[in-house]
Simulated scan of single mutants.
Amino acid sequence: MSFALLFSGQGNQHQAMLPWIDEDDDIVRDMRSRLGVDDWRDALAQPGWAERNANAQTLLTGLALTAWKELAPLVTPPTAVAGYSVGELAAFSAAGVISPESAMALAQRRAEAMDECAMRTPGGLLAVSGLPSLGIKGLCTETGLALAIHNGEDSVILGGPVAALARAEQMALRQGAQCTRLRVNVASHTPWMRDAADSFARTLADVPFRAPQVALFSNAADRVRDAASARIALAMQIAMTVRWDECMENVMARQVRCVLEIGPGQALARMWNKRYPTVPARACDDFRSTGAIAVWLRSHAAE
């Protein structure tokens, strides 16, 4: 089998996601304990709960780790792995770089470090599509925003202070762009998160890391080949642009036959299918059981 795993970022979490997850799994119990909730699905129904950075990052890391734990025994190891934003924690764990226990603890610490920065400069993210690269550069120049995520030539996410985001949205709409404010309250992957990246790097220094067991691609540092570069990559991406288009190119270069997105929603699968229509991608959120996911992978990834 030749397939890739892509781990989702935050923003698309919903009550009904991943209905087949084992609620009695050790990772899920640890996740609920860290979040201080008995039922994470009920918690997602509370206004604002899902948007809190600390909740979302811990929740999504725990669910992604559990999903892969349940699926892994049913399939062969992936050919390539990548994670989108906070999805890198689960991706690095799936690639054998850090333990699931470490990934859970790091999700909490990552969110705390980012929230500390956001308290000093409240910010967020704005998805913009339909503008050429020159138009995006003009928005950043006029408003002072930074390019947080590059998904494609005309699909980006800008980050920065709240007032600047509002101004950029109005400017972009006047130019005919499509804009969506993301359900996050920090300017992830921008210079406003530099202190968080430095703090997280100090945290990572004390965590056991190993070299990846499969091809692992980073948002900020291309391919990760050893433990030292893994530490650097995980810290860097907090305050640097996520080059997701380049991650997809790197994964495609591994000649995978299909792609599976692990996490809520289908955002990464849709982006992949738009870019590489001859290599099918599906999301775990499309299925009702791990068995059905395994059947789909086997049918498309077989040599």
Rank of each mutant, 00 (worst) to 15 (best):
L63M: 07
S2I: 01
R174H: 12
G144H: 14
L260V: 04
M240L: 02
S2T: 09
M271I: 13
V86L: 03
E261D: 01
V256F: 03
L18A: 03
Q237E: 04
V279L: 06
M252A: 10
Q57M: 11
F287L: 03
A281G: 07
A111R: 11
A16R: 10
E23N: 10
R32S: 07
A168L: 09
D245L: 02
V186R: 02
G96W: 00
F287T: 02
E70D: 10
L297H: 13
G130S: 06
M171A: 09
P77Q: 00
R29K: 14
M248A: 01
M104V: 02
A187I: 05
Q175S: 04
A72D: 04
A163N: 15
R270E: 06
A201G: 12
L297S: 14
R41Y: 08
T180K: 06
P77G: 02
A201N: 15
V214E: 08
L165M: 15
A201D: 10
R183E: 15
A172V: 09
A118V: 13
A127C: 14
P264Q: 04
S299P: 12
G11E: 00
F217S: 01
A269Q: 04
A50N: 09
V86A: 02
G130C: 11
I21M: 07
F287D: 05
Q15I: 05
G152M: 09
P78H: 00
Q170P: 13
P161G: 04
E112Q: 09
P73D: 06
A197C: 13
Y84F: 10
A196S: 07
V184S: 01
M248L: 04
I149W: 05
G48A: 08
A91T: 00
F287E: 07
L216K: 14
Q13V: 07
S218D: 06
D198E: 14
Q175Y: 00
E261S: 01
D26N: 12
A113P: 08
T58D: 06
I232Y: 04
C258S: 02
A215K: 13
D226S: 10
G144P: 13
S8R: 02
I238V: 00
M240T: 03
P122K: 13
F217I: 13
A281V: 09
W20K: 08
Q255G: 00
K69Y: 06
N250K: 08
P122E: 05
C179M: 07
